[in-house]
Amino acid sequence: MEHQNQTKFDDFELVGFVVYKNYNPLLFTVFFIIYILTLFGNMLIIVVIYYNANLHTPMYFFITNLSCVDILYVSTTTPKLLIMLVTKNKKISFYWCFTQLYMFHSLGIAECYLLVIMAFDRFVAICKPFQYNVLMNNRVIRSLSMACWISGFLLALIPTILTSQVPFCGRRYIHHYFCDLAPILSMACSDITVTVAINRFVGGITSIFNLAIVVLIYLNIIYAIMKIKTTIGRRKAFSTCSSHLTVVTLFYGAACTVYATPKTAHSVEYDKLFALVYAMYTPFLNPIIYSLRNQEVIYGFKKSLQSMKRHIRKR
């Protein structure tokens, strides 16, 4: 039987950054610039890798996939946030809210698995260099990449469908700047113990479990690197992992802070700020980390610029 106070409505209202509402013009400017630079940076990475044959390796294939995920990931939440800051229209329809919830979590899960695959790629390259081309052939890397995307879009269906079936009561305000699980479920007017448990189980599989695999892989990589006799060899081996380690630390650090820490009355605003790290800043920083710290990408970028200049001169 449905709860007597259950309210039926067609839309929600996102609260956003109420504490910083006096700084809306500044926030809009900062977030808009970050969004545009994120799109440009990730698209540039994709183009540079695509047009440079020397970058057609498994590692850069996965980086291309990561850039595609980041473009979609940041575009799931940022446009609505920018609209809220400019127009003060914070309403979002029921269906768009759950579409946003689904896309955000499916892409987040896909990125979790992709980061594991990228760690595995570095493990094979460092620990089994003579078998690398056999183990990481085109068929394998395409299959692994497809598995990341499919896993994300399938697993995200579970929390999305379960949460959409929950009866909501009273005020329809979502205390966040996008539709996320915890803020939506806080409006529930029935027992959601099972829903929360299943959602946490799915989240645990895709975050804590994957992070544990990444840590285990890197322990093996570090052990293999320490066995290298020359300092130059150790430094070169570790440099191929440094960019990926930086991205993993940013992404999992912020995500675990939001989803794995106990909730208090004062944690809502902090959750929004930490959510910005993995929802906006990580996609923005990824192309910078993978380009500025990678000589091959920088060389590929310069080569692309030279090709464009020659093409323009010919015309």
Rank of each mutant, 00 (worst) to 15 (best):
S267T: 15
L39S: 06
M187F: 08
R200P: 00
I161G: 05
T160K: 01
A254H: 07
I205H: 00
T195L: 03
L250K: 02
Y223M: 11
S307Q: 12
Y35M: 04
F201L: 13
M136D: 03
V248F: 12
T264V: 09
V18W: 10
L55T: 08
A265Y: 05
V15G: 00
T246R: 03
H266G: 09
V116R: 00
L216N: 00
M103E: 04
I63N: 06
F284K: 01
K229P: 01
L85V: 02
H244G: 14
D10Q: 11
L305N: 04
G16R: 00
G233T: 11
L154N: 01
Y290R: 04
F94I: 02
N5A: 15
V47Y: 09
Q6D: 07
V215K: 05
T7A: 13
T240F: 08
Y177W: 15
F120H: 04
T231A: 13
K272P: 07
A279Y: 07
P159T: 03
T264D: 08
N133H: 07
Y270V: 14
A188T: 06
C127P: 02
T163I: 12
T231V: 15
D70G: 11
N24Y: 11
P183H: 06
F98V: 03
D271W: 08
L285T: 09
P283K: 08
T99C: 10
T261G: 00
Y177T: 05
I83Q: 13
L305A: 10
Y73D: 06
P25E: 08
K91G: 11
H56L: 11
